[in-house]
Simulated assay, not measured.
Amino acid sequence: MSRVLKTVGRLCGCCLLALPLAVLASGDKLQTATDLRAEAERASRFGGPLILLFSRQDCPYCQTIKRDHLRPLASNLRYRDKVVVRQIDQDSDAPITDFGGERSTHSRFAAAEKIKLVPVVAFYGPDGKRLADPIIGTRLPDFYQSYLEQAIEKSVLALQRR
């Protein structure tokens, strides 16, 4: 019996060692937007904006913004329960429900929002209106987190005034 327990223990140890690698490998992934109206409503119930990253698969700057700034929001105690962050793929025909409840695709929604270059991080309320100026490009990398935090706070204030 102790041999079985040792084997199980070793397997569990291997799994625990592999877990950080899996987390690192998924470090630049964001949940893809599927229903903007529902996602914005959820964010609004938290008192914060729906944050959309407009991205492309071949955009290295988008990967950096996701990995270094947007993914960490999920673990930041200040924002974890306040914002919902989703990704819109400008080069994808994946289905999406827009703010009006209409069926569309990621690429059509990005075009309707007049997104030409990526990355763009935009902040929306439950009615689909922008709450703060979008962050276009990577700007100054050393100050990007500050830009992001300022836009979130501006969005929260705009929601409180409604």
Rank of each mutant, 00 (worst) to 15 (best):
G9R: 06
P60K: 01
R162P: 04
N76A: 14
C62V: 10
G100D: 12
H106N: 09
E39W: 05
Q31V: 09
D142S: 10
T7R: 14
N76I: 03
K6F: 09
R56A: 13
R78H: 09
S44A: 15
L17I: 13
D133S: 10
V118Q: 06
R86F: 10
G128H: 10
L77W: 04
L77Q: 12
M1W: 10
G9V: 10
R67M: 06
G101R: 07
K6P: 00
T138M: 06
T64H: 04
R10M: 10
K82T: 13
Y79S: 07
F46Y: 15
I96M: 10
A25M: 10
K82N: 01
T97S: 04
A110W: 09
T32Y: 08
D81C: 01
A22F: 12
P49C: 06
V156L: 10
D91N: 15
V121I: 14
K129A: 13
S146V: 01
Q31C: 00
V23H: 03
Q87G: 08
L19C: 11
R139Q: 09
A94R: 13
K116R: 14
L77H: 09
V118M: 11
L11F: 11
L131A: 05
K116Q: 11
K66L: 00
R162Y: 02
G137K: 13
S55Q: 08
A74I: 02
L17M: 14
R45H: 12
F143Q: 11
R10W: 02
Q31P: 00
R161V: 12
T32G: 05
P72V: 04
C62T: 14
P134I: 10
Q160I: 11
I135N: 05
V85M: 09
F109N: 04
I136R: 11
F109S: 05
L30H: 11
K129D: 12
Y61C: 03
F143K: 08
P49S: 07
P60N: 02
K82L: 13
A151I: 06
P95L: 01
R139W: 02
G48L: 04
K66M: 04
G48Y: 04
G137A: 11
A94T: 14
D89A: 15
Y61S: 06
R56V: 02
A122H: 12
T64N: 01
L30K: 07
L53D: 08
G9P: 13
D68I: 01
R139M: 09
T138P: 00
A18N: 06
C15R: 03
R103S: 15
K66N: 02
L19H: 03
D98N: 12
Y147S: 01
H69I: 04
Q160T: 05
S26W: 09
P119K: 12
V156A: 09
L21G: 11
Q145W: 10
V8M: 07
V23E: 05
H106G: 07
S104W: 02
G47C: 10
